[in-house]
């Protein structure tokens, strides 16, 4: 499609509606190649204690995904409290020279990795007050999604299914409700398994999809990254094209009149 259909987050335009993570790859080169094949312009990173002292030659992730080429989206993965999430975002801002865009996640427990929405709301308020542009990972609860928008998050990111589960979209009606009610971009984050899951999310009207494991954990991550890219593009075009209604009975594709047999 030649006409413009940018994804706009915090006033910046993106052409790709796929956001990808950088975790779980075999090595930095595989991460770099797969991310390139995905066409993603926004990539997530995590922050951890530096081990540079132990291995001075270890390649730096930000050399594989340079900030002058990608929009870096630091996450707060591993944070179980609002305080830790806020602290992580401040470190990210320092690390990335004042960069304000962050992916907020406050996790509830290890088994589900479900968001602790109470901690998420608390952290979102604090971060917005400190000038961060917050993309908030959350459950598929439409009311919590609305609250995050009210707080001032620049995107709300409901899960499709638990992080890393690959189950695909489990509650499309909740996602539809969130898409209908929110004005800020809705990014499906977590739980995607394969390209059709991405396409379904986009067909529902979601603005973008964020995933990591579904690419990094595939047998051929680079090929899967390409498939995900196409899934996002196909789903978005189908959404914009407007699908036919579902009917219980057939309707012929060829004219009924003018047949030449009795």
């Amino acid at each position: 499609m030649a006409d413009r259909d940018p994804l706009v987050i915090a006033g910046r335009e993106y052409h790709s509606r796929l956001l990808v993570g950088t975790g779980k790859y075999r090595d930095m080169e595989q991460a770099r190649t797969a991310i390139e094949a995905s066409g993603a312009e926004i990539v997530t990173i995590a922050l951890r204690r530096s081990n540079i002292g132990q291995d001075p030659d270890a390649p730096n992730l930000l050399d594989a995904v340079p900030p002058d080429r990608y929009t870096i989206l630091p996450n707060t993965a591993g944070c179980y409290t609002a305080k830790d999430a806020v602290r992580t975002c401040r470190l990210a801002r320092e690390l990335l020279d004042g960069h304000n865009l962050v992916k907020l996640e406050v996790i509830g427990d290890e088994h589900t990795l479900y968001p602790d929405v109470r901690g998420t709301l608390e952290a979102a308020e604090q971060l917005v007050a400190e000038g961060f542009e917050v993309m908030a990972y959350t459950s598929d609860d439409p009311i919590i999604a609305l609250r995050l928008q009210e707080i001032g998050c620049v995107a709300v990111m409901p899960l499709a299914a638990p992080i890393g589960s690959g189950l695909g979209i489990q509650n499309r009606y909740n996602l539809l409700e969130i898409v209908d009610r929110l004005d800020v971009p809705v990014v499906v984050d977590a739980g995607v398994g394969t390209a059709s899951d991405v396409a379904v999310a986009m067909e529902l009207g979601c603005d973008a999809v964020l995933l990591n494991t579904a690419i990094a954990g595939a047998q051929d991550p680079v090929l899967m990254a390409s498939a995900m890219r196409k899934g996002a593009e196909a789903g978005r075009e189908a959404y914009r094209a407007g699908r036919i209604p579902r009917k219980r009975y057939a309707s012929a594709s060829s004219p009924i009149e003018g047949t030449f047999f009795e």
Partner: peptide
């Protein structure tokens, strides 16, 4: 001392 690593 904190650095960027791979994450989702």
């Amino acid at each position: 001392v904190i650095q960027a690593i791979g994450g989702g």
